[in-house]
Computed example of a mutant assay.
Amino acid sequence: MSRPNSSSILLPIGVLIVAMASIQGGAALAKSLFPLVGAEGTTALRLSLAAIILTVIMRPWRAHLTASSCRSLLAYGVSLGGMNLLFYMSLQTVPLGIAVALEFTGPLTLALLSSRRWLDLLWIGIAAFGIWLLLPITQTQTPIDPLGMAYALGAGLCWALYIIFGQKAGAEHGGQTVALGTIVAAAVVFPIGLVHTGDALFSWSLLPIALGVAVLSSALPYSLEMVALTRLPARTFSTLMSIEPAIAALSGLLFLHEQLSPEQWLAIAAIIIASTGAAATVQAKVKVPRDI
Rank of each mutant, 00 (worst) to 15 (best):
A30N: 03
W123Q: 08
I192A: 03
L216V: 14
Q141L: 13
A111Q: 13
P262G: 05
M20K: 02
S2K: 09
A51G: 05
P146K: 01
Q264S: 08
I52Q: 04
M20W: 05
A249R: 05
A269L: 14
M241K: 09
P208S: 08
L260W: 08
S203Q: 11
Y88F: 15
L216K: 04
L157T: 14
Q283A: 15
L119R: 13
L207T: 12
I13T: 13
A278E: 09
L220G: 03
V286H: 06
I23W: 02
D199C: 00
G38I: 14
T142Q: 09
R71K: 13
P245F: 10
S69N: 14
S217E: 11
V100P: 00
T93H: 04
A111V: 15
T197D: 03
P289Q: 01
T239G: 12
L47S: 03
P143M: 10
G156R: 06
T177L: 03
P35G: 05
G148C: 10
W132E: 03
A101W: 13
S203A: 14
A278S: 14
T55C: 07
R59A: 10
L260K: 04
L96D: 08
Q141C: 00
L11F: 13
T236Q: 06
S6P: 00
A51L: 08
G166A: 08
H257Q: 14
A101L: 12
T43D: 04
A219I: 14
A269D: 02
F202Y: 13
D199F: 07
L133Y: 05
M1S: 09
I268P: 01
A75D: 04
G181W: 03
K285S: 13
I98G: 02
W123R: 06
L10R: 08
L161C: 10
G14W: 12
T236L: 14
A44D: 11
T140G: 07
L119P: 00
V184T: 09
V184P: 02
G193M: 13
G212S: 06
G106S: 06
V178F: 04
H64N: 07
A44E: 10
L96R: 08
T138P: 00
A75P: 02
W265F: 09
R71Q: 11
V56T: 10
K31N: 00
I164P: 03
A50M: 12
Q264W: 12
A267L: 11
G148A: 09
V94L: 13
W118C: 03
A270L: 11
A248K: 06
A214H: 02
P4W: 05
L250W: 05
A160N: 02
T182Y: 01
S261G: 14
A279R: 07
T276H: 01
L211Y: 05
V37L: 14
L91Q: 06
R231H: 12
E40F: 09
G77L: 11
I17A: 12
W159M: 09
V184A: 04
I137S: 12
A185C: 06
A160G: 04
F237D: 01
S261H: 09
A44H: 11
L33F: 10
I209Q: 05
V37H: 10
V18H: 00
A279K: 07
G14E: 10
G174K: 07
A50H: 04
P12W: 07
